Amino acid sequence: MFNFNEDNFRKVTKGAVGLRGQIEEIGEKLTARGYKNLFLIGSGGSIAIMYPFEYMIKTTSTLPVYAEIAAEFVLYDHKQFGPDSLVILSSLSGTTKETVEAAKFCKDKGATTIGLVGELGTPLADLTDYTLVNYSENDTASDSIYLQLYLLIFKLLAARGEFPEYARFADELEAMPEVLLDVKRATEGPAEAFVNKYKDETYHMLIGSGSVWGETYSYAMCVLEEMQWIRTKSVHAAEFFHGTLELVERDTSMILMTGEDESRPLMERVERFARKYTDKLSIFDTKEYELKGISDQFRKYLSPLIIASLFERVSVQLEAQRNHPLSTRRYYRTVEY
């Protein structure tokens, strides 16, 4: 694959699922101690990765769950948050200012915290009560964090008696490094063709729903806008028909990120509309991938990970064909703000 290190990808993703023992031990300790609710906190791409799990918990469990943007969370008095809350925070660098401040805030309030980072000795790693560490670069970060969160979240649900299939699910997650490589290989050609066709496009609409909504929001903001400086609108499929549809014209680029959970009919509705009114429709559908070794009942949970992993191949092509490195920034961590 173009500009891709398969050995490094295997190392990172196997490292993530290799934390299973540690994660299960943490889950058992937390369950024995008890907690009343769960807060998922992050900034930018890190909060976007939390949104799918908020959705999955809401559709699988009675556990109260709140996905919160770090910078906002510390400024308002969330009445459900307190010393008996469990908090999961994520920052690959472990230095994201807003997330570190949120971790300090949670510690001061007496809540129990779990941090997901790429390196020990970083501010977030030093602040959290439990820390999961798996080194990763940006191109493998989402795969790594997703795999850790699947193990952690579903272990917590299993301990509540709400996900009895956990052991089999966790076993199948161990096959995900190779499954994701198959996904990337299958996406290589379509990604190159998509970027070759749309590399000069100045505006995209990205549509998603359910557990994939977080990735839709993230790819629009953190990749197309931040890393490629392309004007982009991310919109939830359930809300598309309440405003955004009026901007669709024949030359409007619409990108659909379609998963396999309960919200899929919302995406199918948008697709039917788009086929009538734009000539620039692109669909990336997780249902088109085999996912060898993964049970049908688990596919809906894995949709956001599949979307994130396949769009990494789109990003690589964007960087190359637009001659715009993904690392180029004008403002982010470059100027004071």
Rank of each mutant, 00 (worst) to 15 (best):
R33S: 12
K109A: 15
R10L: 15
G118A: 12
E72R: 08
K109V: 03
F73Q: 01
T95Q: 14
M56Q: 12
C106F: 08
R10A: 04
E101Y: 12
K11W: 12
D129R: 06
I88R: 05
I47T: 09
F81D: 02
G121L: 15
T60P: 06
D84I: 03
A111I: 05
Y35P: 12
I23R: 01
P83Y: 02
S61I: 13
L86R: 01
V117F: 05
M56E: 10
F73I: 02
S136K: 11
E28Q: 11
E25R: 14
V12C: 08
Y35G: 12
D84Y: 10
K14D: 10
A70V: 04
Y35A: 11
A102L: 07
K36L: 00
A103D: 07
L19Q: 13
A141M: 13
L132Q: 07
P123W: 07
E101C: 08
F9Y: 04
S90D: 07
I88N: 10
V87W: 08
N138F: 09
K107L: 03
N8C: 01
Y76N: 13
H78F: 14
G118V: 08
L116F: 13
N138L: 12
N37H: 02
I41Q: 05
T59C: 10
G15I: 04
G94L: 13
N37Y: 07
T31E: 08
R33N: 08
L127G: 10
M56I: 08
L116N: 01
V17N: 01
S61A: 14
A67V: 11
V87I: 13
L124K: 10
I49V: 13
G82A: 05
K104S: 11
L63S: 11
G44I: 06
A70L: 03
L89R: 06
V12P: 05
P123T: 08
R10K: 14
E28A: 07
A102E: 04
D7N: 15
Y135A: 12
T112Q: 04
G18S: 04
N138P: 00
V133Y: 10
K79P: 09
F9R: 02
T128W: 03
Y66C: 03
A125L: 06
Y66T: 04
D84W: 07
P123L: 11
K79N: 09
S142G: 00
K11R: 15
G34N: 02
E137K: 11
K14M: 10
D7A: 11
K29M: 04
E68T: 00
T131V: 15
K29I: 03
T99K: 08
F39G: 02
R20T: 02
T128A: 10
Q22A: 13
I41P: 12
V100D: 10
V133E: 08
L120A: 08
R20A: 10
F9D: 02
D84Q: 13
K58F: 00
E28M: 03
T128K: 06
K79Y: 04
Q80M: 06
I88Y: 07
N8D: 11
E28D: 06
A102W: 06
R33D: 07
A103T: 05
I57N: 03
S93V: 11
A103N: 02
T122S: 15
A48T: 00
L40Y: 09
K14Q: 11
T112N: 01
